[in-house]
Amino acid sequence: MNFERLLRRLRDDLAEGGLRGSFLVRDLATGAEIGLDADREFPAASLVKVPLVAVTLDRIRRGELDGAQPVEFTPEPAATAGLTGLARFRHPARVAVDDLLYLAVAISDSTAADALFALTPPTEVARTVRGWDLTGISVRHGLAELGDTPAERFADDELHLAHSLAIGAATAGQGHPVSQLDISRASSCSARACTDLLTALWTPSKIDAGVAAQVRELMGQNLLRHRLAPDFAADSAKWSSKTGTVLNLRHEIGVVEHADGQSFAVAALTESNVPAGVQPEAEILMARTARALRDHLRGRG
């Protein structure tokens, strides 16, 4: 199938499934790439944890932070910083910075990520990322507000109302009354910007080689594997990634490393116009779209 025909089919499939997205797949050896609306900007949600972790590790490398430094954590009964990890703790705990890094990536623990942001504020993360010559990624806030959306104000049987608001209230310029969905207020990125970050982590770049290796290891330990992993992980392929989710947004970025030596960076950022919180069909569709792009690029090579 030729490239233009493939893109038309994928656009039609996404529209039929109620999705709009920004996709990009890049061959890390040659730089060849294939994408779909790759420069469209989206709120980043938990994808912002990747630059946060990279910058934190770089500060540890420079001696500004100690990975063994314990961080005190006291549970808050009304906390809304996330549904996994420290937000579920019932008793006070001391967690080392190194372990916060693992929690932030492996189980997307937003409470752990905010403990890291307390050490390295969003402005410093953004400044360091720009210093690595990576553009298109904005880091504007912590993660607590991702757990404080209209969805948390409705009962479970009314969750569709929050998603209806998320879908229907967006402006043509991607503004939104829900701050987490407004690209001028939320941390944001595009598939191209995320692919550039992955490329910098998997190939020589301004990011220290040791730091990049640690980020790759953490992303390889990601336990959230319901989205793109089913189409990319195999006995002959390693999939390392990070997901991002808030309201009707579902993202994942990662790198698939094949046993034959080929490696591809993959970024899939999507928004749904279906007012439902649980959408396994959307997960399948975005994975199928990303896989089709990867297959086309790999076949072309």
Rank of each mutant, 00 (worst) to 15 (best):
S236A: 15
D157F: 11
Q279M: 13
A79H: 11
T111L: 09
T123F: 14
H296D: 07
L198Q: 11
D39L: 10
V274D: 02
A162V: 08
V256H: 01
P70C: 14
A265P: 00
I284F: 13
D235Y: 01
G67E: 09
S22T: 03
A282Q: 11
I107Q: 09
D295F: 01
A290L: 06
H163C: 03
V97N: 07
L181I: 07
E281C: 04
Q180T: 15
P280M: 12
P77Q: 13
E281Y: 04
L6V: 08
E217R: 12
G168C: 08
D13N: 04
D157K: 10
V97K: 01
H258K: 14
R298W: 03
L10T: 00
T128K: 12
C189V: 03
T171M: 07
R26C: 12
S188V: 04
L269M: 09
Q221Y: 01
R216M: 08
E152M: 14
L218E: 00
R291C: 06
A265W: 00
A292Q: 01
L297H: 07
G17T: 03
R61P: 12
N2V: 12
V71S: 08
S190A: 02
R140L: 11
S22M: 01
R26S: 11
R59P: 05
A268N: 02
V139S: 04
G142L: 00
A172H: 13
A170N: 03
G254W: 05
D260K: 12
A287C: 05
L10P: 08
G17Q: 09
T123I: 14
S110G: 15
V278W: 11
I137Q: 07
S241H: 10
A213Y: 07
G254A: 10
R227Y: 10
Q279C: 00
V125T: 07
D114A: 02
R88L: 14
S205N: 12
L36G: 04
L24S: 01
R227G: 01
E33Y: 04
P121W: 08
A93T: 06
A282G: 12
T195H: 09
H176S: 10
R40Y: 02
D98K: 04
S108F: 08
V50M: 00
L218W: 02
I34G: 05
L247A: 13
A115W: 07
T195Y: 06
G301H: 06
A229D: 13
F264D: 07
A93N: 08
G244I: 00
T245G: 02
N248V: 04
P177N: 13
A166I: 00
G301F: 05
